[in-house]
Each structure stands twice: as structure tokens, then as C-alpha cells.
Design a protein around this nucleic acid. Structure first.
Lengths: 236, 236
DNA sequence: ATAATGTTTCGGCACGGGCCGAAGCATCGA
DNA sequence: TCGATGCTTCGGCCCGTGCCGAAACATTAT
């Protein structure tokens, strides 16, 4: 082993099917109980318990005992990004996974990526925002323009408050299904939250899938994607 | 297993110490022979051969037979990014690797990250470029300003040509040793190339370490870091 | 209390896979 | 043509570890 961080122990943890399954299930950023994760991975509770202990020990997860339940979540956004990075390689990896489940299309269309939106809709959103000048995309890097800030403020997202957070405002996140970038960071999270609050889309129970309603999709596109400058008076 | 790319096989490959060692050795972007990788990992040639075959099969590596040698390299930048992402988690992961080798300080100071510079010098470079207005850093996102483009053109880097490439020009890459960002992407690669061409630094044989000469470091800083001032707040 | 549910610890089994010895192919240099 | 070098394939050993049964522990409900 040459010098530098030792990646083998971390990767080995992710490399077990049962553990990978649990981590994937946690990718939506929510906390699940140990029992739920055990069922998710298809192993007995004892086995899952052992896995979770090791992953917490390694800093991949955080566990919080509450009553007789044990809530488990990813230790941080960095872990999520690592998992997405591995997914990016996995999806390229030769044989593209023999059987694509029936839910696969829905998952590619819209899903939660840690705490922001990913999938076709998310990629469309980002590219539309860039096209209308709300975001400035130079290569893979994103910057919110003044126009964009105004757009989101009008929409009801408090950009100024978001800026005070230590969390990056805009982050381009590589979408494993689209192979293009979508919007992450604090702004990405805020947008997804707004989508849920307005009922434009709902999460499918027990999955990462985000399903837009027909009306919600229309409104979503009207707000960000289309518009062009048809009614320039609307903004500010 | 829920739906989505199956990360376990990829992570399992990285999770073996010998294979992780080989991958880490390839992180500098160069191709190494199977034999060199075997010695690097401390395993017999047959063992290494098996590992390499599996990793190629999975799309992590590319092998190219040339004469009686077999040259091996990472399959692409995406694989490198995945490895860096895992390193980022590994370095956070509780115990920070018991014994830090004697070369560790040099590695932290300057090293090759796939094809651009990483380490203290690289972080210093990025922050200086931002401070003088050559790059615009909003959160984690980087954009080359007009002033910055002029700076690099004067320096001898052909920004216009770089822009024509499909590769992102500026990419912020999280530095595992500094826990801050350094400059990657096409521009980052071009800068490192220029540093070598001008003899400001040399690679230490057989490692990722980049050692600046005393004079080279002075010139490097004069070109990018110091100088100071230059632009007022020319935010676009 | 007693029972039910959820989680953890312990112990032992069994399978997968990493490892090397031996041998088989290629290529390069006399 | 003949050895030397580098890589690969095959076969068998063996250690690591994922798995579950059994049981202990903790919390909540009846």
C-alpha cells in the first residue's frame, strides 16, 4: 500500500450486498430503523445489527437509539456523494444490470438524491435554469446569478438565509441515470422541499421515487422550465 | 436490493486490500505494468493477474498488451473521482490510519490527483486565484472570470482551446489531506503540465509526490499566488 | 407482573474468494 | 534455436466472514 488514505476497509464495507442494500436504502437521507433495514436487505435482524455496528464504527452511519427502536442514517452528505460516485461507475460498468425492475423507469424519471431531486426532471430543471440565465454554468460549475436569486426569492425560497448556511448553495451533482448534472446543494434541497410542500409531487412509499402529479408537473415547468420571458413582469 | 445501480460488486472490487493498493497506485493517471502493480500490492504475479482481469471486466481498468508487457490504467476520470470520494470518507473515518509513513508530509504538500495537482500547494493556488479574482468561487463551484482567462492566456495556457474540449474547464476537487478544494478539470491539468514543463517541480519516482524546487516554488507563487491586488470587485 | 416487540451478543457452520505452486503461452534478446 | 522474462490459467489450500439459531437485554403495552 502506497501512502494516502486507506480506501479498502471503507470500500469493503460497501462491497457486501446486504450492506450496500442498506446504504442504498438510506440514500434518500431519511433515517430508518434497524429492523426496516434488515427486511430491506433480506437478512435476519442479528445479521443486520452486526452490519450496522460495523458501518457506524467506520463512520458511514450514525445510530440513534430511541425507545426500543434504533434509527439509522447516513453519517453525512459526503457519504452520500461517495455512494453516488460508486453508482456512477456501476452504471457504466459493462453489463448494465441484467434485469431492470419495473420501477426502474420511474426511478430514472424522478428520485430523491440525499435531499434534493435527481432524475430526468432534475436534469431538465438545471438545464432550463441555465438556459434562462438563472444559473451560470461554466463547465461543471454552477453559480446563482442575480436574476436567479430574484427568481427563487419570488418563488418563495429565501436565498439570503440559505447563503448564511455553511452548506454550498449550488452544487452540480452527476446524475447516474441521465449521465448529466442536476442541481444539488442547499438550493437543490430547498427546491425539492418546495415541490413537496406545494403538492406538485409525492414520494412513493418506501422508495426513492418522486412522482409528479400531472398538474404539479405543469406548474413546475411553468415556474422554472418554460416561461422563457413571456411575462417578464412576473419576476420582481 | 432496491432499484438503482448495484454498487456492491464495484465496491467489493475496491474493497480488497491488494486491489485497492493497485487502484491507488494508478491514481496518478499513468499506466503501470501488471508486474509493477503486483510488486506494489505485495502479491504474486498470478494473483495480480487475476485481480486485474476482474477489474477490467468490471470497467474499472483498461489493459493494453504491448510486447510482453501489459500496461494497466484507470478506465477513466470517473473512476478516479470515485476513488477520491472514497478517500474522502476514509480520511474522516474515525481512526486516521495508525502509522503515517515518513513520506506522508511530502504527499500532503503536493501530489498528483489523476492528472492535476493536489495538496497544500494546490489548495493555496486555488484560494489565491479566487482572492485575486481569476476564479469566481461561489460555494463549491468555480468559474473562470475574464480576468482569469487573460491571466492564463498570458501565462501560456490556451484557454480557448481548452474550452473546446468536452472536459469541464474548472472543477473543484475536494482535497483529502487539506479538506478544502483544489483546482481540477482541464485547467487544473494544464497548470500541472506547465509546472512540469518549466521545471518548477518534479515527480518523485514511483510515487504520486510532486516536489517543487525552491526556485520553482518561488516562480509558481509569483505567477499565481502573490502579485496580489489586480482587480477590483469585477463581479461579472 | 407478564407478554410482546425490537435489538444486540454469542457461537458455530459453511461458503466464497484470496493466495500461491506448477505449468502453459507469448515475446524479446542472444 | 534456445534461454530469459512477463503474463496468464489451473488446481488446491485455507482464512475470513456472512449467515442464522439461541438466548440475553431493553422498552413498551396489557
Amino acid at each position: 500500500m502506497r501512502h494516502g488514505p486507506d480506501i479498502a476497509p471503507i470500500a469493503a464495507l460497501v462491497g457486501d450486498p446486504a450492506r450496500a442494500c442498506m446504504l442504498t436504502a438510506l440514500m434518500d437521507g431519511r433515517a430508518l430503523t434497524a429492523g426496516e433495514l434488515a427486511r430491506e436487505a433480506g437478512v435476519a435482524a442479528q445479521t443486520a445489527s452486526g452490519h450496522l455496528a460495523r458501518m457506524e464504527e467506520a463512520g458511514l452511519l450514525v445510530r440513534r437509539k430511541q425507545g426500543r427502536h434504533c434509527y439509522v442514517a447516513l453519517a453525512g452528505e459526503e457519504v452520500g456523494r461517495m455512494l453516488e460516485a460508486i453508482m456512477g461507475v456501476a452504471v457504466t460498468s459493462g453489463r448494465t444490470r441484467a434485469r431492470t425492475g419495473p420501477r426502474e423507469p420511474a426511478l430514472r424519471a424522478g428520485r430523491v438524491c440525499y435531499d434534493h431531486l435527481a432524475g430526468t426532471q432534475a436534469v431538465e430543471l438545471l438545464e432550463a435554469l441555465v438556459a434562462r440565465g438563472a444559473l451560470w454554468q461554466e463547465d461543471a460549475d454552477l453559480t446563482l446569478t442575480d436574476d436567479g436569486a430574484a427568481l427563487f426569492e419570488d418563488f418563495g425560497i429565501d436565498i439570503r438565509t440559505l447563503r448564511t448556511s455553511r452548506r454550498p448553495l449550488c452544487r452540480s451533482c452527476l446524475d447516474w441515470s441521465e449521465r448529466r448534472f442536476h442541481l444539488g446543494g442547499g438550493l437543490g434541497a430547498a427546491v425539492l422541499l418546495a415541490i413537496f410542500e406545494r403538492g406538485w409531487a409525492r414520494r412513493e412509499e418506501g422508495t426513492r421515487i418522486v412522482r409528479f402529479t400531472a398538474d404539479g408537473l405543469r406548474r413546475f415547468r411553468a415556474a422554472f422550465v418554460s416561461d422563457g420571458q413571456g411575462t417578464d413582469g412576473t419576476t420582481r
